[in-house]
Amino acid sequence: MEKFLYLFRGTENNAHDMRDNNLSPEDMQAQMQKWMTWMKGLGEKGILVGGEPLQVTGKQVTGTKKVVTDGPFIEAKEIVGGYLIVNAKNIDEAVEISKGCPVLEVDGKIEVRPIQNM
């Protein structure tokens, strides 16, 4: 079993920051429900390691001079809105599992990255 990171990109795809999109309260509740079902399923199957949604604000610390700048850092669409870490046999299985993520149903984007064992 290996660990993989799912990076969810774009504020519009963040299930917990849907104020600016065009979802109705009913849609939002449905979306939330899907998240709960999905996460519970991952948990019960032993796939879920952990993960959190992220706020859209933050700071950026850069280089040896440790320059601190305010976010947002890039185009809204490219902002990481959250992450999950999951267990999977290989990258193919990790990708397959990610297809069940509700973020895709609101046209989101998931980056699947194997965790590098050092």
Partner: peptide, 15 residues
Amino acid sequence: DISYLLKSEYTLAPA
């Protein structure tokens, strides 16, 4: 039965 939903902020408050 909802322990998995309590582990992440994605689902904690909604749960």
